[in-house]
Design a binder for these strands. Structure first.
Lengths: 209, 209
DNA sequence: GTCTATAAGAAGATAGAC
DNA sequence: GTCTATCTTCTTATAGAC
């Protein structure tokens, strides 16, 4: 993983700076000159590493697609298998579920790559269908699928009244999705959102038990 | 209201076309030439109506700010007073609440102005703080505030166990927010989202009664 | 692999005729 | 209020020296 290496190659630094600028301004508004300046080179040097501006963007999407497992890693749970994870939740006290929810939330908000990727896809999603599908898949579908599998497993546990795991997944995850959207737009509202998140999970547990 | 007039002035048509292009491509990617072509005039003619491209954008934001009441109007409820609206809900059968939720959802998705404004703000929100605040206010804060007031009133009704109206508002509204985000990215998933929305509201009512 | 110089084109915007 | 012609600046990208 890039962020683990101490020294980044020029190619990697270009991707890193481009990601920052694309996520703040969008692909079109961020110029090659800005990227080059952020890297500390002149614009022509950039073309020794990438054929075009578009190729930088495509390379970023490739990196993004290869980071599917970020969600699970961030939760320190087993790989991508929600069924395995479920056994951890079954006998988990409420406070630990809240702690996990908050850690997940904070990770999505503060992990440099995750947050910049999300912002970039958010503001580029309407430009073409492939980007829209990637946005949906990364931030809605895969998250819901994971939660759905999890709640399907939890439905077997005696103290949770889950009859429709998909709806339960939506009701658990949607507030996280919305509060993240809020904090990406205004970082100063993180603490307030964490409080709301905790209240949501507490109430969610109460409603389903 | 613009959409009510049969004939639009050139100035209005410029705003209309600009809104479409800004909402699909973003401010920077949509060129003045594209806007002019969509209107059916040459780029220089456009400058007789607006001093600059930026002024078109600013004018659109002004229109947007003057449409606060759209949510309430779309629900065919009384103005902006959630407390008044609450009396309608108190003795409302579940199916009617679902119908209202779906109509609200469809309105946000299909009303031409509402949907284009939302897309535009979504993809422009990270470019400056004022846009971010407008995004938050329009699509999160004001909606939550409305729902909160509503659920505060509904808490008084005997058959709803609402102890924390703010959390309840988040739990009711967040799925709508998320499913709308999904459908704005991919219109073909509207029916699936309407089904999910209905299941959510049904389950929501069941959980809180 | 970096630079300077520069091309080729598109962008926002203006002048002035009609 | 529209047009053609034009200006200036910025943008992506290339050529070629070091």
């Amino acid at each position: 993983m890039m962020t683990d290496t101490v020294q980044l190659s020029t190619k990697e630094r270009i991707l890193d700076c481009a990601l920052t600028l694309f996520s703040e301004q969008g692909y079109d508004a961020a110029s090659v000159a800005q990227i080059a300046e952020a890297v500390g080179i002149k614009p022509p040097s950039l073309y020794k590493h990438f054929k075009s501006k578009q190729e930088i963007f495509t390379a970023l999407l490739d990196v993004m697609k290869n980071r599917y497992d970020v969600l699970e890693k961030s939760m320190h749970l087993n790989g991508t298998d929600a069924l395995k994870d479920a056994s951890r939740y079954e006998h988990m006290p409420d406070d630990e579920l809240i702690s996990i929810g908050k850690r997940l939330f904070s990770f999505f908000l503060h992990d440099s790559y995750t947050s910049r990727f999300r912002k970039m896809l958010t503001i580029e999603q309407y430009r073409n269908k492939a980007l829209a599908q990637l946005y949906i898949q990364q931030y809605i579908d895969s998250a819901l699928e994971y939660q759905k599998t999890l709640f399907t497993a939890l439905a077997a546990a005696k103290n949770l009244h889950i009859t429709d795991p998909e709806t339960t997944a939506i009701q658990f995850y949607a507030p996280i999705f919305m509060l993240l959207s809020l904090c990406y737009a205004d970082f100063s509202r993180e603490q307030e959102s964490l409080d709301r998140l905790e209240k949501h999970i507490r109430q969610f547990i109460k409603l389903y038990t």
